[in-house]
Structure formats: C-alpha cells, structure tokens
Design a protein around this nucleic acid. Sequence first.
DNA 1: GCAATGCTTCGGCCGGTTCCGAAGCATCCC
DNA 2: GGGATGCTTCGGAACCGGCCGAAGCATTGC
Lengths: 233, 233
Amino acid sequence: MVHTTALAEIGALIGDAGRANMLAALLDGRALTAKELADHAGVTPQTASGHLAKLTAGHLVVVEKQGRHRFHRLASAEVARMIETMMQMAAHGDAARNAKPIRVGPRDQALRAARTCYDHLAGRLGVALADAMAQRDLIRLDADGGLVTPEGRQFLSTFGLDVDAAPRGKRVLCRPCLDWSERRPHLAGVVGAQIMQRCFNLGWIRRLEGTRAVAVTPSGQEGFRRVFDVRPG
Amino acid sequence: MVHTTALAEIGALIGDAGRANMLAALLDGRALTAKELADHAGVTPQTASGHLAKLTAGHLVVVEKQGRHRFHRLASAEVARMIETMMQMAAHGDAARNAKPIRVGPRDQALRAARTCYDHLAGRLGVALADAMAQRDLIRLDADGGLVTPEGRQFLSTFGLDVDAAPRGKRVLCRPCLDWSERRPHLAGVVGAQIMQRCFNLGWIRRLEGTRAVAVTPSGQEGFRRVFDVRPG
DNA sequence: GCAATGCTTCGGCCGGTTCCGAAGCATCCC
DNA sequence: GGGATGCTTCGGAACCGGCCGAAGCATTGC
C-alpha cells in the first residue's frame, strides 16, 4: 500500500503550524520570499528554510530564483484548492467544537468583508456577487458544481469579459468554492478569476498591504451596485 | 489568526501513518471496529484507541456503540472528499517525484480495476462508466462540476433510478471525483451513489473481502455491456 | 575587494508524540 | 457467577521533528 503512506506525508507536511501558516499566506497566489514566509510563520529564516525545503520536496510549493531572492508560490491551483478544502473542514470542526461564536479581531473583520482566495474573490463580497449572479440566473451553482448560462455569457460580455476566449488549459470554467468565513459558496474557476482581475483593472478594489483582504474603492461601491446590484460593506 | 492553526490541526491529524491508514480504510463508507482499524494501521488495539480518540475529537470520525463493539466511520462525505483530494495530491506528487512507474502488487491490480470510493464507483470501471455516459451526453463533467442532462434522466429512469425522488439533503446531484489511479474523473454525487447501489442490487458487482475492490460478476459483464456499452476488465 | 543582504547547512538541545505492557471497565456468553 | 472478548486508560520508554545559534555560500552594491 504505497498510497496511504503518501497520504500521511501530505498530512504531516501541512500538519505543522509553521508550514500551515506559510501555505495560508501563499493562498492568494502571490509569490513570497523566504523571509516574508518566515515572518508569517513566526520563525527564524533558517527554520523557515527547512520548512520550505520540505514543502518543495513534497511538491506543494515551487521556488523561483530571482537574484538573491527566492520566491515561493503554491505549486498549482489544485494545491490551493486542497488547502481551502481543509480549511473548510477546519471551520466546520470549529463550529461543531465550540458552539459559542468565534472571537474575531479587527484584522479578521477586513478579511471577512472581502479577500482574495487564490485568484478569485471571497468573503462577504465574493458571496454577495455569487448570490446576485445566481439570483438573475447568470450562473448556477450547486454545492460543488457550476455553469454559466447563456444570459450569463451575455452579461459578462457587456462587463468586458469573454469567457470562451480566455485561455483555459485544464481549468474549469465556473465552479463554487465554499467560503470558510461565510460558509456559503462564492465564485471560482476561470470566471471567478476573470471577474476579480477585471475589478482590479477597473479600480473597484485594491489589495490591503500585508493581508489577503481587499478594500472596495468609492468607484467600486458605485460599480458593484450598478452592474451587480451588490452593496458591499 | 485562529483559522490557520486549525489547518495545522487537521493536517497533523492526517499526518500520522497509522491514522492515515485508518482513514483510508474508512474511505469506502463502511463502519469498522477499533480492532479492524488497528489491523489496518498495523498497531496494537491500545494504540489504535488513542488514534481513534483523536480522530473523533477532531470530528473526522464518528463512533457508534453497538454492544461491546464500537463502530467508527467517517464523519461526513465532506471528510471523505477531503481525503480523496489529498490522495490525489499525493498521487500527483508521486508521479512528479519518481518518473519510473510505480510498482504495483496484485492487490493494487484489483483496486485499480474497480473499487468503491466512499459511496460510488471508482477505478477503471468507474472511469469507463463516466466516460460512456458523457459520450452519449447523459451527463456532462467538467474538471470539477457536473450535471445530468434531460436525456440522462430518461436513461437513468429506464435503469430504475429516479434522481429527483432520491433524498438529497445538501448533497450535490452529480459531480466528478478525480480518480487517483486513473487520474481521470469518475462519477460521484447522488447519481454516482445511486448507480453503485443499483449495481450491487442487480448483482452486477460484489465486494471483495477485506478491500475496497469490487469484482464484476458474469451478469455484470453482460449488464454493463448492454446498458452502458462498457466492457469491464 | 569589502561589506551587506538573503538564504541555506550543520549541530545540538528540547518538547511533543507515538508506542506498547499492564491494568481497568464494559459487555456478552455459558 | 465466571470467563472470554472488545476497548480504554495509565505509565514510562523511545523516538522523531522543530527550533535556533553559528557558520557557510551566493548575490548585490559600493
């Protein structure tokens, strides 16, 4: 039974607090340096170096040298999805474990409002967008499958996106991604990625330094309301 | 940051060879006793007891007492999916790690041919069924989303299944589940579960003692060919 | 060349986890 | 009741894995 030991290896890789923090930090798709990841994990660079070597050997992370820096990123979207899946499990487990509401800090508040999830939008904003689009039958999302309706293609086209023209590779066009803070699905897949990119380009949202949280700009407030009938915040 | 530590906890839970073996053994949805799981993990009962206590505390496993036995099963289909996802990662990692083909034993051969995956069929048989149904446009599967076409409902109806009448709860009707041996999707969700159940009822397949592998009976050979145009084996 | 920066490797310490033998409950069977 | 059987708890031994200080390599900048 060669496979089961492999399962334990993957688990052990993620089952360390330091490495888990690093992976979570990489979840938005950016590439970070070893030092940055060391800070995220709360360990010294030499410890982080060891962790990153293991993550790389386990093919969860890939490195890219650039001068004297080494940028680390998740090896694939599949890895990101696996980690998101595990975080959902963790959230469910928490919910069952302690019935009392989870204490949240101000930093969590921003994350809960709107954040990136690898390459698409999550948090209340992401869920609201998915809800609004489903409401108008632009997309249909089931617990873990999704599609874009003809009306949806039309809509996205006027929004400036051509879902069929985009390079897809092996990626799925449209799929739900369960939100660990909202516990409801938001929009992922090629469409989810395109929408987020477009929102950045339009200046509707911008990244908050040092976190995966994003802020909605004034023009975003107006745009989300006008185009998606969504009132962020 | 309460969530990231939770991620590490889940990982650590799976990151022990003994516990990983237990979880893999439970992957077909059956409930097993502590002793059986101890054998699977290759440890003594008292060690297994400790592991199972942790898995239960982590809400990956639930127990059910029945006389002097305690039956353990995966806590939910979500847990099963998470573990399958991780095994896929492990398989991909393996593939990249050593280019040489993986050595397989005779036991693996049976598993690769046809096996249960929690509550649906996997292995070459599962993939072949999914392929055949997609070919005739009875279902449509994308990398991680799926649906049953009207023709599919008709087809399943003549096969003795009413997908809409079945109790669904929050489960998705139809979704792909990437096969770790074939590296191609097979059919999961309510439809996948119904089809497997029907095949058992028709006597087309039967469980092989002590494994998740299933054997195709002679009538199954005939049935799969006639109904699905699939030639197992 | 020299110093500074980013990262890795080495070595030893330390804490947590796993493991099993022995003993203790609980349940079933006769 | 008495004796299996199934499982858990307790205790201590062994082991692994993370962690950091010190030192070493690579790259950049002056």
